[in-house]
Simulated scan of single mutants.
Amino acid sequence: MSTIESLLREATGKLHGHSDSPRLDAELLLAHVLDTGRTTLHTWPERQPSPETEAAFLGLVERRLVGEPVAYLIGRRGFWNFDLDVSPDVLIPRPETELLVEQALARIPADADWPIADLGTGSGAIALALARERPRCTIHAVDRSAAALAVARRNAERLDLHNLHFHQGDWLDALPAGIDWQMIVSNPPYVPEDAPHLAARGVRYEPRAALAAGADGLDDIRRIVPAAWQALAPGGWLLLEHGWDQGEAVPRLLEAAGFREVADYRDLAGHPRVAAGRKPC
Rank of each mutant, 00 (worst) to 15 (best):
M1V: 08
S2Q: 12
I4G: 05
L7F: 12
L8Q: 02
L8I: 14
L8A: 05
G13K: 05
K14Y: 04
K14P: 00
L15V: 06
L15F: 00
H16A: 14
H18R: 15
P22I: 13
R23C: 01
L24W: 09
L24C: 02
L24E: 04
D25Y: 03
E27K: 11
L28P: 03
L29Q: 06
L29A: 05
L29P: 04
H32I: 08
T36R: 13
G37W: 01
T39D: 13
T39F: 00
T43W: 03
P45W: 04
R47H: 14
E52P: 01
T53K: 04
F57M: 00
L58V: 02
G59M: 04
E62Y: 01
R63E: 13
R64M: 10
R64G: 09
G67F: 02
G67M: 03
I74Q: 08
G75Q: 13
G75T: 10
D83R: 03
D85C: 09
D85R: 15
P88E: 12
D89V: 02
V90A: 14
P93D: 09
E96Q: 09
V101N: 07
A106R: 11
I108K: 10
A112F: 12
D113Y: 01
P115Y: 06
I116Q: 10
A117V: 10
A117M: 01
S123C: 10
I126F: 08
I126A: 08
A131D: 11
R132V: 04
E133A: 15
E133M: 12
R134Q: 07
P135L: 09
R136F: 00
C137Q: 11
C137H: 09
I139M: 03
H140R: 03
A141C: 13
R144A: 13
A146S: 13
A150L: 08
A150V: 07
V151F: 02
A156F: 09
E157P: 00
D160H: 07
N163R: 07
H165Y: 11
F166E: 01
H167Y: 15
Q168G: 08
L172Q: 06
D173F: 03
L175G: 10
L175Q: 10
P176V: 10
A177M: 01
A177F: 00
G178E: 05
I179Q: 07
I179H: 04
Q182D: 08
M183K: 01
P189S: 11
V191S: 01
V191K: 02
P192C: 12
A195D: 14
P196A: 14
L198P: 13
L198V: 11
L198T: 13
A199Q: 15
V203M: 08
E206S: 12
P207C: 13
A209W: 02
A209R: 11
A209H: 10
D216W: 11
D219M: 03
D219S: 13
D220Y: 00
D220F: 02
I224Y: 01
V225Q: 04
A227V: 03
A227E: 14
Q230A: 15
P234N: 12
G236R: 03
L240C: 07
H242K: 09
W244F: 15
D245W: 02
Q246C: 01
A249R: 03
L253W: 05
E255T: 15
A257C: 14
A257V: 06
E261W: 02
Y265L: 12
V274L: 06
G277T: 14
G277A: 12
R278T: 04
C281F: 14
